[in-house]
Design a protein around this nucleic acid. Structure first.
Lengths: 124, 124, 124, 124
DNA sequence: GTGGTCTAGACCACC
DNA sequence: GTGGTCTAGACCACC
C-alpha cells in the first residue's frame, strides 16, 4: 500500500482497513491479522498499526478480545453504516472533481450511468 | 506534488498537467513554465519533465516553439476532448469503487445526485 | 551504422529497425536483440536505443514482454502497412530529386522502368 | 553538408557539385566559388576541394582559366549528359530499395506515378 | 537475465 | 534565454 504525506499514516490505515471490511475482503465477525503481521504487510511500524486499530475499536468497527484477538464487528448494521460513509466519501471526491471540470449535475449523472453500463459490460 | 510508485513519474506528470489544463489553471494558449522551472517546482529531474512534455506535444495538448517555449493548445475543441477523457477517467474510478461496494446503478446515481446538491450548497 | 546530424539518432534508429523488419531481415514474430546489445552493435547509448524501441512499441511494430524481450509483431498486416509507408517514403525521395532535375512524370516513370529491367537483369 | 565514411570525401564533393550544376544552382557558364571559400562553406580542407575540382575538370564538367577562375562548362549537352547520369543514379537507388521490399515493376511504376501527382499538387 | 525509469550533466540548435 | 538530445550510470520490477 502507498501512503502520502497529506494525512497521518495511522489515519490512512483506518481508511484501508475500512475499505477491506466494507468490500467484504475482511468479512463481518472474521479475525483480523495481528498488528505485527499487518505492520510487516504494509511496511509500517506495529505501533502505528496499533493506533489505527484503536480507532477502529473506538468506532465499533472492530472489537477486541484480549485473549482471542481482534475481530470485525458482527453487527452488520454497523458495517452497512460504514459502507455508506465510504460510498459518500467516494461520491464526494467524484463530485468535487466534476465541479472542478465545470460539469452540470445532469451531465455528471448521465456520465456515471453510461460508464456504469460500460464497465458492467466489461466484467460480465 | 506527491508521486506514487504505481506508475512512472512522467505519466503522473502528464496527468497533473492535463488536470491543470482542463480545469483552466493553465488556460488555452497560455505559456507553460519551462522544463527546468517545472522540475524544480515538482521536485523531479528536468529530463523527466521533458519526457512528460513530449507526450503532451504528441497528443497535441501542447505545442512547442523551440525558442519561445511551450504553450497550451489554442484549439479549444482539443481541450474539450481532453476534459471529456479526464471526466470519464474520474467516473470510471467512482464506478469501480461503487461496484466494489456492491452498489446498484440506481443507488450510485442517487448518491451522486444527493452529494452534488450537498456540495454545491457548501460552495454557494 | 552511420548517423547524420539532420535528425535525432533515435529517429534514425526507428528507420533502420523498420527497414530491417520490412525487408524480412527481422522476420515477423522474431526476437530483437536486447537494448544493450543493439547499443553496442550500433555504437550508441542503450538509453537512445530504448527511446527508439519505445517508439516502435507505440506504433505496434514491436511488442515487449518485460522479461522475455522485444519481438517483431506477428501481425503481418501491420508489417505490410509499414512496408507501404517505407515504400512511399522512398518514392517521395526519388520524386523530389526528379522534380529538382526538372524531369517530367513520363520521363521519370520511363527511367524507373528501364533501370528496373537493367537491375533485375544484373541480379538474375 | 554531411559526409559519411562509405567513400572518400573528395568523391562526395564531386557528387555535391554535380548536384548543384544539374539542378541549376550553379548555372552553365557561371563562375564557381574559390577552393578556399568552398572549403570553409563545406567544412573541409581546401586541398580536398581541389582534388574534387580536378576531377570535375577532368570530366569536362568545369573548365579552369588560370587567371579568371573555374567555371561550369557552357556545353549544355555535357550538362544534360551529367543530369542523365545523376537521374539514373537516383533511379537505381529507388529500384534497389523497391527490390529489397519485394515490389514488382508494375507496383513501383504505379507508386511513382501516384506520389508524383501528390507531390506536384503539394508544391502547386 | 530482460526491459523500464530516473538522475546528473553535457552539449546542441535556434533566437 | 528556450527546448531537444545524448550519455553514463544507478536502480527497479519481473522471472
Amino acid at each position: 500500500m502507498e501512503f502520502d504525506s497529506s494525512s497521518p499514516i495511522w489515519l490512512q490505515l483506518v481508511g484501508e482497513c475500512s475499505r477491506r471490511i466494507v468490500t467484504g475482503e475482511w468479512p463481518a465477525g472474521s479475525r483480523l491479522p495481528g498488528v505485527r503481521d499487518l505492520g510487516v504487510e504494509l511496511g509500517v511500524n506495529p505501533n502505528t498499526v496499533q493506533r489505527a486499530m484503536a480507532e477502529l475499536d473506538r468506532q465499533s468497527i472492530t472489537v477486541t478480545d484480549r485473549t482471542k484477538g481482534r475481530f470485525v464487528t458482527d453487527d452488520v448494521a454497523r458495517i452497512d453504516e460504514l459502507r455508506a460513509q465510504v460510498a459518500t466519501a467516494h461520491a464526494d471526491e467524484f463530485v468535487r472533481r466534476a465541479l472542478g471540470l465545470g460539469m452540470t449535475a445532469e451531465r455528471a449523472v448521465q456520465l456515471i450511468s453510461n460508464r456504469w453500463r460500460a464497465m458492467e459490460g466489461e466484467s460480465a
